[in-house]
Nucleic acid binder design. Structure first.
Lengths: 209, 209
DNA sequence: ACCTGAACACCGTTCAAGT
DNA sequence: ACCTGAACACCGTTCAAGT
């Protein structure tokens, strides 16, 4: 057999990636197998290993493309009247992206914890957080770079958590239906609280009995 | 062969569950196989299916026990001088529990999204959220039950998100090291912001130029 | 009634062999 | 040089057969 240069390696790589994305989108990551991909693109299992080191490598590249798409979606949120509004719109887009691409979206922060992520992948995550940091920086320009970075991590890890638990059913029917308001409350409360000067003064402690 | 009543089904169930928990704790969920469990308890693969419907059923029960342990850990946080302090201590305990039981902890909110969770499992999650709701209710007693429920979901989904991304390496070295302060910032800012009366007034808007 | 273990239908990965 | 496909070492699940 051994079909000769019917496609370049580059083309086969794209075919594998596209086929894999389609399988994950439709049936979830657990349905992704080398044999299914090979079937779909008309090659055999061995061919997949010409263009990706292994299944984990392929998965990382699927996740990489999702991060890129997500970044594009968040870049669409410029031009709001206030930084607060921009952050809310970005969070809305995040939830909407998660809803529309659940199976692929679920993968992006689902790392092993033991094995370290490739540098190029961490850079994509950084790019995403940089986007998220911009309105926070505009909101409180006097805060240090470290403070804004910390706030970005806190807020957007939180946003991810709300979307995750809402969409995966862990919060039950009610939790799923109220994902939007729950997310809005987290974002609004965090922003409001973060703007207060430290040390924190609660309403009670400023009004002595 | 067919060893006769060397153990009761109840005992075998406990042995399977314990062996499974040990495997997951030490090597992660992806290392959990029926054959490994059978090996460890000195039975054969078929025996596992006498006491659990399938691997998914077993996994749910592992997760159920983790939720119980986590609830016990959060119950240890009573008797702080303020509701705010109690919430912070609970969040600290949550992170500490996650750190000490990473492999099992990671499983608890890692649902499929498509298939619905068993009712008894959702009840355990509810019990956990009820624990988390108590200090929020004491903090703002005039808020409705619905408001407190929503705030609990927002805050604790957020807490889970921060722990998840910090511990699984998605936030890089720095993110992992700063998990504690990141979490504290999220909790502190959320609580502070949530206490403000709606409609929200940002510092800028209360100080006209 | 309890338990076995072979059988079935799958996996990911490798690599000698073909064109 | 590109690609195949059999082989290897695994999976989860079932169920006839043994004690």
């Amino acid at each position: 057999m051994a079909r000769r240069s019917e496609h370049t390696l580059e083309q086969i790589r794209d075919m594998v990636l596209s086929a894999a994305e389609a399988i994950v989108s439709q049936h979830g990551i657990e349905a992704l197998t080398v044999r299914k991909i090979a079937m779909d693109i008309g090659y055999t299992v061995g061919s997949i290993y010409m263009v990706f080191a292994n299944m984990n490598d392929l998965e990382m590249h699927i996740k990489g493309r999702v991060l890129d798409e997500l970044a594009d979606s968040l870049r669409d949120c410029k031009g709001c009247e206030s930084p607060q509004a921009e952050i809310q719109v970005m969070a809305d887009h995040y939830l909407e992206f998660a809803r529309q691409h659940v199976n692929r979206w679920r993968m992006i922060f689902d790392a092993d914890g033991n094995q370290s992520l490739p540098a190029w992948y961490l850079e994509k995550i950084d790019a995403l957080f940089d986007l998220a940091a911009q309105p926070l920086h505009r909101l409180m320009p006097e805060r240090s770079h470290e403070d804004v970075t910390l706030a970005t991590r806190a807020l957007w890890s939180g946003v991810h958590g709300v979307c995750l638990l809402s969409l995966n059913g862990s919060l039950g029917r009610a939790g799923a239906q109220q994902a939007g308001v729950t997310l809005a409350l987290l974002v609004d409360s965090f922003i409001c609280g973060w703007q207060q000067p430290a040390p924190r003064l609660s309403p009670q402690s400023v009004t002595p009995p």
